[in-house]
């Protein structure tokens, strides 16, 4: 694998990881929907011009074309903004990919409020809930560059359809080669015994760590889990956290309904565990335009909001 520090942004990491795979695996093709310059799949096109297809602004068609390509032995990665990569092509993902058991990897860029200045029309708050309804999709949302690079590779090797939530811009380096990064296995970023903060995605894991630091000043030891894989859910690590700390704060960059918090709560109830739980999410509303800083405050998704929830249940 190449040196991650070569990359400038998450989008370069995603495409770089796919290019590295495609150099070895000639079944990989890339389909974009007139957003190739946004995600940087132009780099893939440059490397493999015959294996890149710009399907234009026709996302539903792109999804089914990918399914067709899969049925003759190709493994397509397809991209659009997360709102279109889920809602706009949902029935196509459901029937022509999920139900038909086609291995197609969907990249949904700029999840939740990371869509920032594209505003409410472009903010996928519901994509986790939607993708959870398709029984065979892996859903993942890495929180740093190295895990993003590695999980794209692992998802390909797993050979099941997948949905990736990733911001395009930014380049957090949280992990190094000593970190065990495994699809379906949450990373324990901080150890702690008083409360567990479970977070998905870059900025919420950032806020979770900041919250854990702030809580230490109050002698509260918070465990922080980076839940980079939403499905399959790492039930073992979550059950252990529930047992060890008895209190969970579940943070996700999307709606409560059908999201990670509901998924984890439901699992714990069915396994006779009843930790005290609080949620960090956008609530029950539509998105709006603004900076990530403004929106994370607007929707109550900052380290301060996480700390408040911790104090509620301590």
């Amino acid at each position: 694998m190449r040196d991650i520090s070569e990359f400038q942004n998450y989008k370069d990491v995603v495409i770089g990881s796919i290019i590295d795979l495609a150099e070895v695996h000639d079944d990989i093709v890339f389909l974009d929907s007139d957003l190739s310059s946004c995600i940087g799949s132009t780099s893939f096109q440059k490397e493999f011009p015959s294996r890149f297809f710009n399907c234009g602004i026709a996302e539903a068609n792109m999804a089914c074309i990918a399914g067709g390509l899969s049925s003759v032995g190709f493994t397509p990665f397809i991209h659009s903004f997360g709102c279109f990569a889920s809602r706009r092509m949902y029935d196509q993902l459901f029937i022509s990919i999920g139900y038909a058991h086609r291995t197609v990897h969907v990249i949904g860029s700029d999840p939740g409020i990371t869509a920032q200045y594209n505003g409410g029309t472009h903010m996928p708050f519901e994509d986790i809930a939607l993708m959870r309804q398709i029984p065979n999709f892996v859903i993942y949302e890495p929180s740093d560059a190295l895990s993003l690079y590695k999980l794209v590779q692992q998802v390909y090797k797993r050979g099941e359809p997948s949905y990736l939530r990733t911001p395009r811009k930014g380049m957090t380096r949280r992990y190094d080669e000593s970190t065990e990064i495994e699809l379906g296995k949450a990373i324990t970023v901080r150890e702690g015994s008083d409360v567990t903060i479970i977070a998905t995605g870059v900025f919420l894991v950032d806020h979770a760590i900041k919250a854990a630091d702030d809580l230490l000043k109050h002698r509260i030891k918070a465990r922080v889990l980076d839940l980079h894989t939403i499905r399959p859910l790492d039930t073992e690590t979550i059950m252990k956290a529930a047992n060890d700390t008895g209190k969970l704060i579940i943070c996700e960059n999307g709606r409560y309904a059908g999201g990670v918090g509901e998924m984890i709560s439901s699992y714990l109830i069915q396994h006779d565990l009843a930790p005290r739980i609080r949620f960090i999410n956008v609530g029950d509303c539509f998105g709006e335009v603004g900076s990530l800083d403004y929106l994370s405050k607007r929707f109550g998704m900052t380290s301060g909001d996480i700390c408040k929830k911790v104090f509620e249940i301590l």
């Binding site: 539903a60 067709g68 390509l69 003759v72 022509s96």
Partner: peptide, 18 residues
């Protein structure tokens, strides 16, 4: 789910050519 099959056929034909 009507409308999807012809898109899949486009993908298959594209793949055969590739």
């Amino acid at each position: 789910s009507l409308g999807q099959g012809i898109s899949a056929a486009v993908g298959i034909a594209l793949g055969q050519r590739l």
